[in-house]
Every structure is written in C-alpha cells, then in structure tokens.
Design a binder for these strands. Sequence first.
DNA 1: CGTTGCGTTGAATAAGGTCAAATAGAGTGG
DNA 2: CCACTCTATTTGACCTTATTCAACGCAACG
Lengths: 258, 258
Amino acid sequence: MMPVLATRPMPAARVCLDGTPQASVARVPNACSSCGLRSMCLPCGIRGEDLAEVEGVVYSRRRVVRGDNLYRAGDPFHALYAVRTGFFKSFVLTDDGRTQVTGFQMPGDMIGLDGIEDDRHQQHVEALENAEVCVMPYAELERSATHIPRLQRGLHRMMSREIVREQGLMLLLGTMRADARVAAFLLNLSQRFADRGYSAREFNLRMSREEMGSYLGLKLETVSRAISRFQDLKLICAQHRYIRLEDVDGLRAQMERS
Amino acid sequence: MMPVLATRPMPAARVCLDGTPQASVARVPNACSSCGLRSMCLPCGIRGEDLAEVEGVVYSRRRVVRGDNLYRAGDPFHALYAVRTGFFKSFVLTDDGRTQVTGFQMPGDMIGLDGIEDDRHQQHVEALENAEVCVMPYAELERSATHIPRLQRGLHRMMSREIVREQGLMLLLGTMRADARVAAFLLNLSQRFADRGYSAREFNLRMSREEMGSYLGLKLETVSRAISRFQDLKLICAQHRYIRLEDVDGLRAQMERS
DNA sequence: CGTTGCGTTGAATAAGGTCAAATAGAGTGG
DNA sequence: CCACTCTATTTGACCTTATTCAACGCAACG
C-alpha cells in the first residue's frame, strides 16, 4: 500500500519550539483507547477488538508547523486526518485570488472529507499554530468499515455533520448582518472550547481579523469594528486575540438582531 | 423492518395533473438497470448481482406534489432520496423566520444526507413542481454497503460531493458581488441541465426570484436587477422564468468581475 | 374582467467596503 | 535594555453597493 505522505517530499526532521528534533511523520502506535478526544473522534463508541483494529489503521501521526499546509487543493487524497493538537484553517481559492475560509479545525475535528469525491483535495488546509494530526489512510478505513458497523456509521456521521455545519455557515453568510455574524462566531467558538473542556468564557483566538473576516464574508475592518462595538456594549472584553465573554445573553441578542 | 414513511400520515392516493389517481408511495420494483439517470446516481458503476441487490434496496418510489415537503427539519431520518423527476429546494430556517435556501435538486441529485448525523433531518425539502423520488432506506443501504464496495464508495462520494458543493456556495456567498452571484447561478444551472441531456442554452427556471435570492444571499429585487442588466448587455434573454443564454463568455466575465 | 401573485423599476437609505492614518505589540539586532 | 522594524489591529472619513419602500406591469385564473 502506498505511503500516505509520499506525494509531497517532507524534510526528514524539524526542530520544534522546545528544541527537540521531531520527525514530521511518526509511526508511533496510536492509543485511541487512552485518547482524551475519543468521545468526539471517529473511534467514538468503538470498543474491544474493533478498537484495536482501528488503532491499527490510525498508525501514524503527522506534525505540521505553523504556517505550513496539511495539504493543498489538487493534492491526491489518501487519508483523513483527526486533529490531536493545534489549530487549522481550511479555505478555497478562486482563480482570481479571492479566498474563502471554510472552517477552523481544533482538536477532535476531522479534516480531509473534501477529497473523497474526486481522489484529490478540493481545498487547502493550513496550520494556524504548530499542530499534530492522526493520519487515517482512507483505503484502510474503508476496508475496516465493511466489518465494523460503528466505524462505517461514524464515518457517515462525520460527513453528515460537516454538511450540516456548512449549511449553518451558509445561513450566516446569506442572511446575517455583520455584527450578528461576529457574535455567532464568538459564541460558536466558545461552545467548541467548552465541548473540549476549555473555558467557554475566555480564550485566545488563533486566527487574525482578516481570517475571521474571510470566514464570515466580511472585511477585517468590519470585524474589528464589530468587536469594538461589543466591547463598548460590555458584551465582551477583547485585547487583540484574547477574548473574554462578559454577557453571553447580550451576544445572543446581537446574533438574532434583524 | 419499519416502513420508511410511517412517520407522517400520507393520503392514500392523489390525483395527478393528468387525472390519473396515483399512490404517493408506490412499491413498484425500481429498475436502476434501465434508468437513464444511473450514471449520475448512487448505483453508478454497480453491475450484475450487486445491482440487483441495490434494486432490492431502492424498493419504493414516492411522489411529491408541488409545494409539499419531502421532509421537514426535525423529521426522523430513515432514507435517502434520489430525484427521478421534478425539482426540489432545500432550505434551513432560523427561529426568527429567516430562511436560507441551501440547494436546488434536479433529477439524478441525492437528497437527505443532512439527516444521518443526528437521525433527524436538519433542513426542509420542498417540491418546486410535481416530483418523484426513489426511496433508499438508509439502514438497508448501510447493510448492503458492507459487502458492495462500490456502493460504500458511492455513498462516500455523494457526501463528499455535497461538502464540496457547499464550499463553492460559501465562496459565492462570502466573496462575490450581486451580479457575479447571479451569473454564477445561471451558468451552474446551465451546466447541470447539460449534464442531464437538456439544453445548456435555454431553460425554464423552477424557482421564483425570491428563492433565487435566498439561495444567493440577495433580495429578490437585486436578483431581478441583475437579470435586467444582463439582458441590457445582451448576455441573456429572459422573460420571467424563461432564460436563454446569449453570451456565455460574457456571463463568465461577469462572474469574475471584482 | 377584476383579483392575485410574481416580476420589474425607481428613489431614498443604510450597511459595509475602501482608503488612509494612527497605535500597539512582538520580534530583532545593537 | 533599548531603539527599530514589521505586522496586526483599531479608528476615521468617504464611497459603493445592496436593501428598503413604493409603485407599476404582466400573466394566469376564477
């Protein structure tokens, strides 16, 4: 079977922030069974022998340095990825250079579903901070899914969830005004942090105002103004990328206004 | 096994436009093998015994009268649907009544993928004209997919395609100006008609200006103005819902402007 | 032949984008 | 440790675009 990452030459080793040399791809056996993210990851609900088999499929990890791409549009599709640590953004580009961020992925999120249809990835995925993903070769996943019903179901659920998530974003992009979009974004991030055991009330954004704007269909200045307005209204306290939610109900009200 | 449509009482029979009484749900054996849409439908690439089995899964059809819902958000999810004839729109609603059309489905398109994640549908689907769908009970589909690799692959592709389609729409909603959105919409429709063997050059829209606008994140007046402008520029000829493309390259240019 | 729903068009308005300048940190090198 | 640079962010003034509100036209239908 073809190695998952053979298509893009990778440096043999990188130096991490702490100075430790790290292989970009590690064939460390993955212990899904002891992974804190399991409940929201693909192996969710899989136990015993089946889990052992899935651990065999998820046989490698990959580190991605901040600013590097996990993959680019046009790259051949071989694997799905589960975020272990770090933050990613996914985005699509037009010929004429416009960019639309389609999502921000955090630990527990799945990346790569855009590649199944055409055997090539259709979007770009870039690490917003040093990150690590579990690599799940699609061919093996597909094979295992034939005799692990929960795995098949899990895969389908993942894809369906992504479809529904995108519909929510379309609703936002199509019908909400600028302030409502930003409020919805902050509340959504807050919820996702909470789901992962982090504080729902305060967090650091991993993306720039421009990246937020691209995701929300707004210019960076508009995002900045919305945030300043929320601060004037005492709904949040924001200093650059640090955000503290002061009045969640107030934010909700902003989301639903007009 | 639970009947697919037991959850919503259906009238026993309806009178069709031609006066023939028609059961809403027909247990007519479906001949995927002789269906003209097979190449773009789920059974694509499946042959022989496997195709016979899939035909056994797709055991019923359902008619939907113009204006009726195929399903509503919150309905329990049991089946995927393949459009045989007619046009649908799918849409999501906010609590406060805003609506976002998320897609228009024509023959050969798949409907229902939004329901897998949560066992309930997340969006509404309404027939824009009298229509007929093939009903594919999901539980049986899932079971057959375990031993028909092409079926599993087909299902995954369908979902991935939907994810990518929605990303394209997000790009449109997030980055394009009004005229560009309308041009992109017309060109996309044209392409889809062509894929199905209809004229790429002239067609009748099945949706109102308001529905187009909802899909494109615009008000109906804005859509109408864009169409009038294209007509002034001799890019199209439009009379209400009849559209004839006069200058496809010109439309493409509109799509890419600014 | 009026009614009704849908589509078109015009004028005024509001929202967000554009351009430009000021400010604040983070990182760099002396 | 400090000055300097670079980049991200904020803010203001102005402009473009799409929305809103309103009127009118057209076609289908009872």
